[in-house]
């Protein structure tokens, strides 16, 4: 049996996860929210954003509501943002003021999104890749494959950034995966 596209996606996400969780392990609130420059994203903002982006893509592909909303995360995270906000277009002031209540809340939300993604991938077959789903913005539609690929690219790029920041703050050799 040959490797399906959903297998590939799962492998990529699985491979990515140790970098993300490794970068959050044992981190204190100060480092979690630290910005290396006045307008740069913190680890907290990046992990929240990448999870929200994945939640949004998977919700559109699976035709389900966001975990962010159904799982009570709006209240638990208490960010005071529009429930559909995923961080795009945040101003430098918003980025600097961004605070999550705890690293465990952030990890729990990431894991809830990951699990919803896993359920979606279990149900998906490669024929679904051609199916039209809502575009990220506007009223149009795009093939599901496009949103799947965007999910990966965004998640992996931001994970690389999170890992880089932990290395910048913590020093060389922090990651053992």
């Amino acid at each position: 049996m040959s490797t399906s596209v959903s297998d590939f996606v799962r492998q990529l996400l699985d491979r990515n996860e140790p970098y993300l969780l490794g970068a959050l392990e044992g981190i204190d609130p100060d480092m979690l929210h630290r910005q290396p420059g006045p307008e740069s994203n913190s680890i907290a903002w990046l992990v929240w954003h990448l999870s929200r982006v994945q939640d949004n893509h998977v919700s559109a592909m699976a035709g389900r509501d966001h975990v962010w909303i159904t799982g009570g995360w709006v209240e638990r995270m208490g960010l005071g943002l529009d429930p559909m906000d995923r961080g795009r277009g945040h101003t430098p002031e918003q980025i600097a003021a961004f605070r999550v209540p705890s690293v465990s809340a952030l990890m729990d939300y990431y894991e809830a999104v990951r699990d919803a993604t896993g359920t979606f991938l279990d149900e998906m077959d490669d024929a679904a890749l051609e199916r039209q789903v809502p575009a990220v913005s506007g009223d149009g539609t795009v093939p599901l494959a496009q949103r799947l690929e965007m999910t990966l690219t965004d998640g992996l790029q931001h994970t690389g950034q999170v890992a880089y920041l932990r290395g910048l703050f913590e020093g060389r050799g922090w990651l053992a995966v």
Binding site: L12, N16, N41, G160, Q161, A163, Y164
Partner: peptide, 12 residues
């Protein structure tokens, strides 16, 4: 995985 993470780091 490797290349996308590093591309993200460059953008950052």
């Amino acid at each position: 995985s490797d290349n996308t993470q590093h591309a993200g780091q460059i953008a950052y």
